[in-house]
Amino acid sequence: MGVAQAGIAFRSGEESFTPELAVASLFGKSVNRLSAPIDRSFDSRHDHHVLVQQFGDIWIISNHALVWPILENPEHDLCGLHEILDKPALMIAFCQYDSGDSYGYALIEDGVLTRSRLQASGSDVRLFGVTKPFEQKWETAEFYLDEDDCPEEEWQKVYYLDDRKVTVPEYYLTSRLAYEALTENFGVCPWESDLKPNIWYLQLNEESVQCTSAPGMKVRKPWWKVW
């Protein structure tokens, strides 16, 4: 089995940060925290399931409907998201869908998306913004062609660094860059970490709620909906 996770990572040192309240504010719905054991049907790709992980002061909120609009549209309005999460200096939205060969990430600095990369199955890589330093070494990396007893039209590029000590197939490069974006900025990548996070398994209810997040801000709808 591969990884199937799309989330938003950010840093919050606020002791008052409450995952249930943040998620309720993001989606405009009441929230239940599920108790262990968690049923195998729980899947953050479902609209009503939200996974929250805490690695020290790093938080990751995972839900497909929350993340995909950001990766798909770099012009997406992020004001509500930024406000609800207490205006973090940096947020990284990411997706790692091994089964669908879809990978992506977006760097959001002070509420503004400055760089994104999306590699969806069957589509060309979509880029937005100026190249970040962690990406530059891969943009100039050398490569070789992996023939693997295939016809020439099926040969794959394999990029490498340090005299081939680090190799990444072209189809997996976006995934590698997402990993580096998370580890270099937050020190943790949820699908490659040996650290054990605190976890909240949350289920959204149909009941709409009015939640107060940042001072003076009231949320009645999911932040990505038209107000």
Rank of each mutant, 00 (worst) to 15 (best):
S25N: 08
L182N: 00
I60V: 14
H64D: 14
L195V: 09
L177W: 04
G111D: 00
P133K: 13
V67F: 03
L21M: 07
N185Q: 09
S44C: 15
G7R: 00
N185A: 08
Y160H: 13
L51N: 00
D101M: 14
K132N: 06
P74E: 10
L51D: 04
L182D: 03
P215C: 10
I108L: 02
D149P: 07
R115F: 01
S121Q: 08
V112T: 11
D39F: 08
F10S: 04
G80E: 04
D47H: 12
I8A: 04
E147V: 14
Q203L: 08
A9K: 04
P151D: 15
E207A: 11
L182T: 01
P151T: 11
T167L: 00
P197W: 00
F94A: 02
L161A: 02
A22D: 06
P215K: 10
P190A: 07
E153V: 15
V50H: 02
N63G: 07
A24V: 05
S12H: 10
H64M: 08
P169Q: 07
S193W: 01
D162G: 12
D57F: 09
S44G: 08
R40D: 13
E135T: 00
T174H: 05
F94S: 03
V112M: 10
H82T: 06
V219K: 00
K221W: 01
F27I: 05
Y172A: 08
D98K: 01
G111A: 10
P133Y: 07
G111Y: 09
P19A: 02
R176T: 09
P88I: 03
W227S: 13
Y105V: 02
D124C: 04
G100L: 10
D86W: 01
Y201K: 05
K225G: 01
L127S: 09
D163H: 14
D77W: 04
Y144N: 05
L127D: 14
P133F: 13
G2P: 01
D163T: 14
E139R: 15
C95D: 02
S123T: 11
Q210S: 15
F128W: 07
V31K: 03
I70Y: 00
I108T: 00
G111H: 02
L34D: 15
E142S: 15
V188D: 07
Y103T: 11
A120I: 08
Y103N: 01
A141D: 03
A214C: 10
Y171L: 11
W138G: 11
N205M: 08
L202K: 05
V166Y: 00
D146C: 07
P19E: 05
K165T: 11
S25D: 05
Y172E: 04
W191T: 10
L182P: 03
M1D: 13
V226M: 09
Y160R: 02
D43K: 05
A36T: 09
D39I: 13
G80W: 01
I84M: 10
E14T: 12
N32R: 12
M1H: 15
L81E: 07
P19W: 06
M1W: 12
E72Q: 14
H76P: 02
K29E: 06
L195P: 03
F42C: 12
L85N: 02
T140S: 15
A178F: 01
H76D: 02
Q210M: 11
D86V: 05
L81R: 03
W155T: 10
L204A: 01
V168Q: 00
E147S: 15
V67I: 12
R40V: 08
K221E: 04
E75R: 11
P169I: 01
E14F: 09
